[in-house]
């Protein structure tokens, strides 16, 4: 018999789940009310790229010059091959080697 879930776990995780789900669905539903043209639209169109770039910048910088080399190689492979897996592995290889050398 698996242990039943404690009430406090049920509540704590449930509340965290509600918060997370509200953000996910809320963003989608809210965006339907945004203006469909003009400057606001320009901002929304730029959002995916800006978000994704923001996601990676600090972790690239924290790897120093090797982070920049790894990302440049990843971008080149992604552009040339259109293969995300190959691009990912080439970037990881640079970091793997850099860390080995740095030990």
């Amino acid at each position: 018999m698996p242990a039943a879930i404690e009430t406090q776990v049920l509540v704590a995780v449930g509340l965290a789940a509600v918060v997370t789900y509200a953000l996910r669905l809320g963003g989608l539903l809210l965006a339907a009310r945004f203006p469909r043209a003009g400057r606001f639209r320009q901002g929304m169109d730029a959002l995916p790229g800006a978000l994704l770039f923001s996601l990676v910048v600090p972790s690239i910088v924290s790897e120093g010059i090797w982070g920049v080399v790894a990302t440049a190689l990843t971008a080149i492979v992604a552009l040339r091959s259109r293969n995300t897996l190959a691009a990912m592995l080439s970037g990881m290889l640079v970091i793997f080697i850099a860390r080995k050398l740095g030990q």
Binding site: L52, T71, A75, S90
Partner: peptide, 10 residues
């Protein structure tokens, strides 16, 4: 994660 997101950002 950084590499995949970078490749997708391209």
């Amino acid at each position: 994660f950084t590499a995949v997101f970078s490749a997708l950002a391209v």
